[in-house]
Write a protein that binds this DNA or RNA. Structure first.
Lengths: 219, 219
DNA sequence: ACAAAAGTGTTGCTGTTACACCCATGG
DNA sequence: CCATGGGTGTAACAGCAACACTTTTGT
């Protein structure tokens, strides 16, 4: 590999969702060598007539079938040995999907969702990329920096569900009464009037975020 | 320009400093066409045997003469018309320098420091890049996210000096007594025992950040 | 009736806000 | 002695942390 000012760039997508009180990521199983049988992030090589954002959106669309979505750039990775042959620079993006889109949540032999603390064997440096990006993201979610917590709950949720996710991301437990009080007393959530139906135990109140109060709110 | 999977990448450096209570940026004046006489960010084309971080460090070293420094990656810009000929992807980095390094602060015809709210005529899309990156950074400084405020004050400072910078970045005034109390009462700063010498008016107490208390502290 | 999950109240502490006067230095 | 800039106290309020029991549902 000779010295050159031309570089190969790929876009990698971390498709995430708050599901069952966990932070989950979508991965695909590699069907051919190299890394056959390993899991990888969806991605695509960038051509010089496309901007990074469009490349990321295209992957998102092809992968999930969704047109809209919260997608944002995170970090560029440029280690010389990232790929097996020439150096490929990866620009990572995060896409956040609503937990209620259960149709794309079906696991098959080729694609599946994983809790970010239970990742399978990953190809290339994708494990490192996921860890770096998620580590940054955890801080943003738990402080609601860039309104990141809101983005994971665009539709209705119960406070225990929100708390489970929050505790999972924060990796430590929080007092339930204080958590509840904070959101209700400060009008950060709005009672939809609906309750959860199924399951044992008392049904939970379904809330949604009060965007006006929640935007810019620091947790 | 034909379709290809090879891309040109440049690294652009935003060298910043908290000086005289303002946030300032280092710029260079372009001596040749295109954009002759306009100001631009220092930068360098990336070759495929170098990682982005090293490229940024090299620019920093050549520009400031300093070996060490707080440098971190911010965002990649990939608009098709960024450059005049083929599309060049810019990966921006921020470098924060100590305000006390006054020797590199000397303005010449070719290089100078500007307050980020008083930028000169800029070449390429560098104004847009600066605005985007600084807009993100302002939020981090004022909330001390990623300990960003600390990074701008590695050495001694007076509380009024810190407050001036803070108000400049936040773009709104703060009560002096409350600002003082916050930092002193919570032991976020340590009295060095020294005072400012020159100037009219009562000398100010020189503090430095109490790193243990300040790390992770949210303002 | 019991198991499972959701809901709630009080108290003390800590930090925030709003507000006006005194102190140390140089000229 | 005056101009300039730095340092300080208090009271009302808001949010946070620590604490255990009751309510609603399904089985």
């Amino acid at each position: 590999m000779e010295n050159s000012y031309y570089n190969v760039i790929e876009t990698l997508l971390l498709i995430l969702s708050a599901d069952e009180g966990k932070l989950k990521i979508y991965l695909e199983k590699k069907k051919e060598e190299p890394y056959k049988g390993y899991w990888i992030l969806p991605g695509s090589i960038l051509n010089n007539q496309t901007i990074l954002e469009d490349n990321a959106k295209n992957i998102y669309q092809k992968t999930t079938g969704l047109d809209e979505g919260c997608i944002f750039q995170t970090k560029a990775f440029s280690d010389l040995k990232r790929d097996l042959n020439e150096r490929v620079i990866a620009v990572s993006f995060v896409a956040i999907t609503d937990k209620t889109l259960t149709d794309i949540k079906q696991s098959t032999n080729e694609k599946a969702w994983f809790q970010i603390d239970e990742l399978p064997k990953l190809g290339f440096d994708h494990e490192q990329i996921i860890n770096e990006v998620i580590s940054e993201l955890r801080k943003k979610i738990t402080t609601n920096y860039d309104d990141m917590l809101i983005k994971f709950f665009p539709s209705d949720f119960t406070l225990p569900e929100l708390q489970n996710f929050y505790e999972f991301v924060l990796s430590k437990p929080i007092d339930r009464r204080n958590f509840h009080k904070k959101f209700v007393n400060q009008d950060l959530v709005i009672d939809t009037g609906f309750k959860t139906a199924k399951g044992s135990g008392r049904p939970g109140t379904l809330y949604r975020f009060n965007i006006d109060k929640m935007k810019g709110k620091r947790l």
